[in-house]
Design a protein around this nucleic acid. Sequence first.
DNA 1: TATGAATGAGTGTTCATTCAT
DNA 2: CATGAATGAACACTCATTCAT
Lengths: 197, 197, 197, 197
Amino acid sequence: MNLSSRRTRKRKDEILKSAMRIINTRGYEAATMEEIAAELLMTKGSLYYYFKNKQDLMYQCHHLVLSEAVKELEEHLEKDQSVTETLKNMVDTHIYFAVEEKETYNLLIRPDQAYDKEHLQSTLDLRKYYASLFDKLIERGIASGEFSIKEPVIARMFILGSMNWIQQWFYPDNRLTREQLQQLFYEYILTLLRGSE
Amino acid sequence: MNLSSRRTRKRKDEILKSAMRIINTRGYEAATMEEIAAELLMTKGSLYYYFKNKQDLMYQCHHLVLSEAVKELEEHLEKDQSVTETLKNMVDTHIYFAVEEKETYNLLIRPDQAYDKEHLQSTLDLRKYYASLFDKLIERGIASGEFSIKEPVIARMFILGSMNWIQQWFYPDNRLTREQLQQLFYEYILTLLRGSE
Amino acid sequence: MNLSSRRTRKRKDEILKSAMRIINTRGYEAATMEEIAAELLMTKGSLYYYFKNKQDLMYQCHHLVLSEAVKELEEHLEKDQSVTETLKNMVDTHIYFAVEEKETYNLLIRPDQAYDKEHLQSTLDLRKYYASLFDKLIERGIASGEFSIKEPVIARMFILGSMNWIQQWFYPDNRLTREQLQQLFYEYILTLLRGSE
Amino acid sequence: MNLSSRRTRKRKDEILKSAMRIINTRGYEAATMEEIAAELLMTKGSLYYYFKNKQDLMYQCHHLVLSEAVKELEEHLEKDQSVTETLKNMVDTHIYFAVEEKETYNLLIRPDQAYDKEHLQSTLDLRKYYASLFDKLIERGIASGEFSIKEPVIARMFILGSMNWIQQWFYPDNRLTREQLQQLFYEYILTLLRGSE
DNA sequence: TATGAATGAGTGTTCATTCAT
DNA sequence: CATGAATGAACACTCATTCAT
C-alpha cells in the first residue's frame, strides 16, 4: 500500500469516527451528511469523495464496529481458558461495545430499511456470525457439563437481548460503573446457563 | 360527555389504530402523516383537527399501548395467585405486547428526540411505573423466599431487556410459536430469579 | 368530473403551459423545477402536488403537444381533400408546431435518457404513430399516381427531418414569415414526392 | 514548435478524441469531466491543464470535427468533377459525419447556452461557412442549368436539415446500410434540386 | 369537520472548478 | 505535468405544517 492510499485510508477512518459520534448522538436517520461533515470542518460534498453515498458511509460505520467486536470475541474463544472465564470476557466485550458504541454497534433497528440488498445481506451475515460465537461457547459449556440450558439458541437470544438493551437505560455513574454492570450481568448469565438444579 | 365529543373520541381512536399499524410496519420516523391518513381514506390536513402535530399523534399511540399493558400487569398483580403464576402472566403480557405491537410499544428508541419536554417526562414516568410493577413482583418473590437475586433492579433491567429485544428477531412460525416462546422465557427468568443455590 | 378535479385539471394545465415556456427557452435539462414554479409564483414543493416528479412533468408536456399535433393531422387526413391539399395542411401543421413549440414538440433528443421505461415506450409509440400519418398520405399519393418516390418510409424520414430542423435556424421576421416558409417547404416536398420524370 | 509543446498538442488531441467518444455516447450535458478523464486513465483535475474549462473542451471537440468536415467539403468542391458527382461526394461526407460523430458534429442544439460569446461567434461563423459550401454547389448547378430550385438558401436549409436529422433515427443494420442511405438521400436531393419539370 | 392546496425548511447528491504538493 | 482532495453552488425531492373555504 502506497503513501497516498494510506492517507486516504486514514481520512476515511477519521470520517467514520466522526460519523459514529454523530450516529451515537442523533441516531441513524437523524444523522445528516451536513452534520457529519461539519464536525470535521469539511463540506458535505467532500464526503462523497470518500463514500459513494450516505448508505455506504453508514454501512461502513456499522461494519467497522461489528468487525472489531467479532475479532475480540474470536480472541477470547481461542485463548486457553475455562468456559466461565471465556464467558466473562465475552460478556465484558459485548457490554463494552453496547455501551460505548451504542447505535453504531448493534441497535440499527431496521437494517432492511437502511440498506440495499447487498449491504443488508452482508450485515445480516456478520450478525449471524457474531451470534454464533456465543453459541459456540454455550455448546462448549454444555459439552463439559458446566451448563445446562433448554433450547440453547433461544437462550442465547435471551442473553444477547438483555445485553443489547443496556444501551437503552444505562448511563455510567458512581452508583453503577460499567465494570460493576459487566460483573453483575456475567453472574446473571452464569446462573441462567448453569440451570436451576 | 356529549354526542359530538364522543364522536371525536371515536375518530381519534380510529386514527390511533391506523397510525399504530403504520408505525409497526414502517417504523417511527418512516411513518408519514400522509400514509396514516391514506389508510383511513382521509387527507393529511384532517389529522391536524384531531392531533396538534405528528409528535402529539405519536405520543398518544405510544401512551395508549403502554397504558393498556400497564392495566393488564396491574390486574395480574392484584389477582390472588402464586408468585410464579403471576410471573408467568406478566411475562406473557409483556411478550405479547412486544411481539404484537412492536415499535409502538416500547422500542421507541429515542423518546428524547421524538418528544418535547412535557411528553417526554410523561413517557418516562409511565415507563418507570411499568417497570416498577415488575420490581414489585420480584420483591414479593424475595420476601417469600422463592427468589434469590442480587441487585433486583438491575436484574429487572436484564429481564425486561431480554424480552424487549424479542421484537428484533422473533417472527412466529411453526418452529417456534409465541406461546412456546413465552413459556421458554418464563422458565429462563424463573431460573434466573431463583438463583443458583 | 366534479368541480374540484376540474380545478386541479386546470391548474395542471397552467403548470404545463408554464413548463413548456421554460423548456422552449432553456431546454429540457436546463429547465429547473424552481424556475417553472417561479413563473407561476409558486414554490418548488407545490409542483410535486400535481406531478410525481420532474420526469413526469416533462413527459406530460411532451405528450400534450404531441397529442394535439396528432389530432390535427388526423383531421387533415379525414377531410375529403386532394392529396396535395392534405399535404399542404399537414406540412403547415408540422411546421407550426415545430416553430411554436420547439423543444417541447419533437426535439427531445434523448428520450431514452430523460424517461424511464414506461414513459419511453409510450413516447416512442406516439412518435411512431405520428410518423405513420405521413406514411398514410404518401401511400395515398402513390396509389393515385400523383406521387412517385423510392423507399417511401425513408423519404418520409427525409421530409420530417427537414421540417424538424427548422427550429434550429428559423426565427420569423419580415424577410421570411412562417407562412412563406410553410409554402416553400410544401413545394419542395411536393417536388420530391412527385419524382423527377 | 518545440518538443514539449508538440507533446502537449498530442495529449490534447487524445483528450479530444476521448471526449468525443463520451459526448457521442452520453450527450453534451451528460458527459462529465470525470468520465472523460477516466477513459484516459487520468484524473479530472489534469484536464484543466490542457483546457480552460469544460466549455473550452467541448468547443474544441465541436470545432475539430466541424473543421475536418469543412476540409473534406472544400476538397470535393475543388476537384474537377460534375456538379452531380460533387453533390454525391458532399452528401456522402455530411452523412458520414452526421452518423459517425453524431452529437459532436452538428447537433449541439443550444450553442448559445453552452458557449460564451466568443466561442459562440466562432462556432456560428464556422457553421455559416460550412453551409455556404453547399450554397456554392447549388449555385454552380443553377448556373449550369442542371438545378432549378426556388429560394436556394432555404432549400439548402431543407436539405441540410434532412441530413442532420439522420442521427435521430438511423442505426445502420443490414436492412439499410450507411452506403444505401447515402445513395438514397443523394437521389432525393437531386430530384429536389432538379425541380419538377 | 374535512380537504385541497400551498409552503418552506431540510436532505442527499452531482459536478465543474480550484489548488497545494 | 499530474493528482488528490476539497469546495460550493445547484438541483430534485420529501414532508410536516398551515389555512382558506
